[in-house]
Computed example of a mutant assay.
Amino acid sequence: MAITSHDVARLAGVSQPTVSRALRGDERVSAATREKVRQAARALDYVPSEAGRTLSTRATRRVGVIVTDLTNPFYPHVVAPLHDELSSLGYRMMLITERSDEAVAQETLLDQSMDGVVLATATTDSRLPAQLERRGMPHVFLNRDTGRAGDVASVVDNEGGGRLVARELVALGHRRVAGVFGAANTTTGRERELGFRLALAEAGVGLPAERVVRGAFEYDTGYRALSTLLDVREAPTAVFCGNDVVAIGVLNAALAAGVRVPEELTVVGFDDLPMAAWEVFRLTTVRHDLRELSRQAARLLVRRIAGDTGAEGRRVVLPTEFVPRATHARVP
């Protein structure tokens, strides 16, 4: 016969509701009683029923993480620490990997099966955040958001990072610069481009349309972009890429085209993924704390689940720093 919470209650000498509250860590139960209940549960090898707990508390202790681009090497580096932080806060993580927000929006997984959602690949035109809001589903943005006022998010100082790159390139004497930016409907793409453009303009350096390419944050975007940039009337001496994955695509295309990096072409990325430091790349890039980005998102969501909807602490913006390696040099 299966051990029940009533058996634990009899052994501990308390009521069954007290067992349920004690095993949830409810602070209305004294520390001594909580410990007595835990000892009784261990003695009986009792495992609380998650289904029963959900019915009694209306909490599943599950969080959904929506990623629509798992092929991008960026996301494993934020999903793993997100999982660890949620686990430390008492939540289980469910990874949802539909190809689009529209597909996710139709999933019954979001109907009372989880307590909150982390949106890791949101776009500025995404309809899912509004749908979650209407359902009363707590949610936060990780890495990028919709760009609307009120988004609860853990993000990076993308504009500041773009400015860092532009100033470094100008200091190295580059005037014919190019940008391979992210998609126009992503805040990371927009903000990194904006910071880059603003700092170039302050230095009197232009960024003409023929030296700008936009696309998905993926290897192929960078690889294809370089041939386009090399065909313009005045080919660039430096390329700022929307992320490290795009930059690695540019590096490979340069190798295939016989363009020497950094002697003939400076290439700079963004994010400082672990692979950026590999000896085969030694990519000059912009660094931010990937693990802290995820940890902050987890903490923000747990506060939202607990009912904290105050304006203070709704947005965490992590700083950036320029990381010089082997793919940048003074203008040839």
Rank of each mutant, 00 (worst) to 15 (best):
T320A: 10
L109D: 15
H6I: 12
T108H: 15
R190Y: 10
A120F: 09
V331Q: 05
T71S: 13
N72H: 07
P17C: 02
L119S: 05
G310R: 14
P73H: 12
R134V: 01
F270C: 09
R61H: 06
V316R: 11
I248W: 13
T68S: 13
V212Y: 00
A41L: 02
P48C: 09
F281G: 13
G179N: 04
T309W: 11
L226H: 05
A153Y: 04
E35N: 02
S88W: 04
D45G: 14
R295T: 12
T68V: 03
A12I: 00
E218C: 15
A12R: 00
A166M: 06
T57V: 01
Y91Q: 03
R127S: 14
V78W: 15
V317I: 14
E50K: 08
R34M: 09
T266C: 13
A103W: 01
L200S: 11
V8S: 01
A257W: 13
A184R: 14
R315W: 06
F141A: 11
L89I: 04
D84L: 09
R163S: 12
D26E: 02
T237A: 08
T266G: 02
D231A: 15
A277F: 14
A297D: 12
G25P: 10
R260Y: 04
G179T: 03
T124N: 03
D7V: 04
A41S: 09
E263L: 10
R127K: 12
T285W: 15
A105Q: 09
